[in-house]
């Protein structure tokens, strides 16, 4: 919903970035059905919180995508001890099917995460993050984002205009290519001309006079600090546990049982906590707002 999106937009880009890295990073490198399932379910919830309504039209496509990915592994990978049946003389094994479903969960989850995160990651937030690494690159990207739509518009207009003048409307392929080349060259000249003015505008406003600062639009508030340290803590804990192998599973030749020891349960819990950080933060923010309104 718009309201939720706006609330999340108040967070510092770094916080959202940390969240994204933690959720996706762990989901992508840890093949464990519990964690994949957790990621998938949370991705669905998060997406629902951000979008206006459920677009049912898209659901079959998503299910198909899920099914195809799940099917690919057993179709091409024939290891595993338990043979289910033979297809064209190839073994289809239970282990491969299990692994396929697990990967499908992973891909599905990542896909849904990207959908929802792209809604809160606007271009200026990405540039803000990039600016922290390289201010110059960030400025160049920003200028490119300003320039490209303008270039495309000029291109479109010039094409229309030349067609109206009766030029380059022949139907042969070579003529059309020649026409496009001509228009492309002309618009490129225009772009160079334009960039001179941009350069003037930059100089007029003191570009290159002294060391640039970077305007940071977002404040790194208490909420951000709390969320970031929370995420970092959980992330480190999970990575250590994964390294120790407490949630790792072997799928071939025989699939291990899903690890359900105390440590493994702790890792699942931690990952669920990571996944639900932003949805929970959102609930807190909304609740606070509600309380304020009530006063």
């Amino acid at each position: 919903m718009q309201e939720n999106k706006r609330l999340l937009m108040r967070l510092h880009p770094i916080t959202t970035f940390c969240y994204m890295m933690a959720v996706l990073g762990i989901a992508m490198f840890c093949v464990n059905p519990v964690m994949q399932g957790c990621s998938l379910i949370c991705a669905c919830i998060f997406l629902r919180m951000l979008s206006e309504r459920i677009v049912w039209r898209r659901v079959p496509a998503f299910v198909l995508f899920f099914a195809v990915i799940a099917a690919i592994n057993p179709l091409f990978y024939h290891n595993g001890a338990t043979v289910l049946f033979y297809l064209n003389g190839n073994r289809i094994t239970l282990e491969a099917v299990r692994y396929g479903i697990c990967t499908a969960c992973m891909f599905g989850g990542v896909f849904l995460w990207c959908r929802s995160l792209s809604q809160i990651f606007s271009s200026d937030r990405i540039l803000c993050l990039l600016g922290a690494v390289s201010p110059k690159a960030s400025l160049v990207c920003s200028m490119t984002l300003r320039f490209l739509p303008m270039y495309a518009r000029q291109m479109e207009k010039t094409k229309e205009q030349q067609r109206l003048l009766g030029l380059y409307r022949e139907n042969t392929l070579i003529d059309r290519i020649r026409g496009s080349m001509k228009v492309f060259a002309a618009v490129t000249t225009w772009a160079l001309e334009h960039s001179m003015h941009t350069a003037d505008s930059m100089q007029a406003r003191g570009y290159g006079v002294c060391r640039r600062t970077q305007y940071r639009r977002w404040r790194f508030g208490r909420m951000d600090a709390a969320l970031c340290s929370w995420l970092l803590l959980l992330f480190i804990a999970i990575v250590i546990e994964i390294n120790r192998g407490s949630v790792s599973m072997r799928f071939y030749p025989v699939t291990d049982a899903i690890p359900l020891g105390a440590e493994s349960l702790l890792v699942y819990l931690c990952y669920a906590a990571v996944c639900f950080t932003l949805p929970a933060a959102l609930c807190v923010l909304r609740f606070r707002r509600m309380m304020r309104e009530r006063e």
């Binding site: 540039l127 920003s142 300003r146 941009t198 505008s201 006079v209 600062t213």
Partner: peptide
């Protein structure tokens, strides 16, 4: 169309000040 350097309104407003090292 020729004067704006950056892609967003808020960034354009800040551009000159960034250059001056504010």
């Amino acid at each position: 169309d020729e004067q704006p350097v950056t892609d967003k309104v808020w960034h354009e407003l800040a551009f000159g000040l960034e250059n001056m090292g504010v």
